[in-house]
Computed example of a mutant assay.
Amino acid sequence: MSEERTGVATIQGNPLTLIGPELKVGDKAPDFTINKDLIEEASLSDYEGKIKLISVVPSLDTSVCEAQTRRFNEEASKLGDKVKVITISVDLPFAQGRFCSVAGIENLDTLSDYKFRSFGKSYGVLIKELQLDMRSIFILDESNTIRYVEYLEEMTNHPDYDAALSAVKALL
């Protein structure tokens, strides 16, 4: 059974339970199985040798998630080919594709945690009550060591974009 953490996250002030461990800077990033589309899966090893900025959003169909994804899409084009920017949500791959097409998202990968919730459970962001992944940011170096992590306490808040981008740039 997975660890459950209470008192660490809310949605509009209402408490949420997160499933999985709280990862910290210096931890080895856990592997995960996640979907590129309904059939094709991806894992951490698909991004071997890259610095990874993993932006986790509950659903691309909300204003804060959309703004977060747009911001990191803009920044991704400036970071160079040593960095891979990944947005993860539990939206179906069809919805992710439609969102990216309409929003002009071309510089990052969108991956779906809908099938197994593997990422959410491994990274401690799966919300028990909603079965969504809690807004968070993870920066992994080329050897998959966590170099920056931000677990947001309130789902509707924006992450600290500048701190996350500074952490990526420090690895370049």
Rank of each mutant, 00 (worst) to 15 (best):
G80N: 11
V85P: 10
S143D: 12
F32R: 01
D160C: 06
N73Y: 09
P15I: 04
Q131T: 11
E153T: 15
K28G: 06
T6V: 13
M1R: 14
G26R: 11
D81I: 10
K28L: 09
V25G: 03
Y123K: 05
G97Y: 02
F116E: 15
D31H: 08
C100K: 15
H158W: 03
L171C: 03
I88L: 10
I139L: 10
E22D: 08
K78I: 00
E4F: 14
D27P: 11
L172K: 14
T33Q: 08
L165W: 02
N144C: 05
I54L: 13
S2A: 13
S55K: 05
L53H: 02
M1K: 14
Y114W: 07
P58A: 03
M134C: 09
S63P: 07
D37K: 02
K50P: 05
K128N: 07
I88T: 01
K28F: 07
L172G: 12
Y151H: 02
I19H: 01
E142F: 02
I39D: 15
I19D: 09
S122C: 05
V83I: 08
L16W: 04
G124I: 07
N73D: 15
R70C: 13
K24M: 04
N35S: 14
L38S: 15
V64E: 13
D91Q: 06
G97I: 01
K24C: 06
V85A: 00
V25F: 11
E154M: 06
G26C: 04
S122M: 10
G26N: 09
D160V: 00
V85S: 00
T17D: 13
E41Y: 07
I19T: 12
E150D: 06
K121N: 09
L126W: 04
L18R: 08
S122D: 15
L92N: 12
V149D: 00
K52N: 13
A67P: 01
K128E: 02
V125G: 05
I34V: 07
E154T: 04
T69W: 03
Y148S: 06
K169N: 11
D91F: 01
V168G: 02
L16Q: 14
E48T: 03
V149N: 06
S63H: 11
F32K: 05
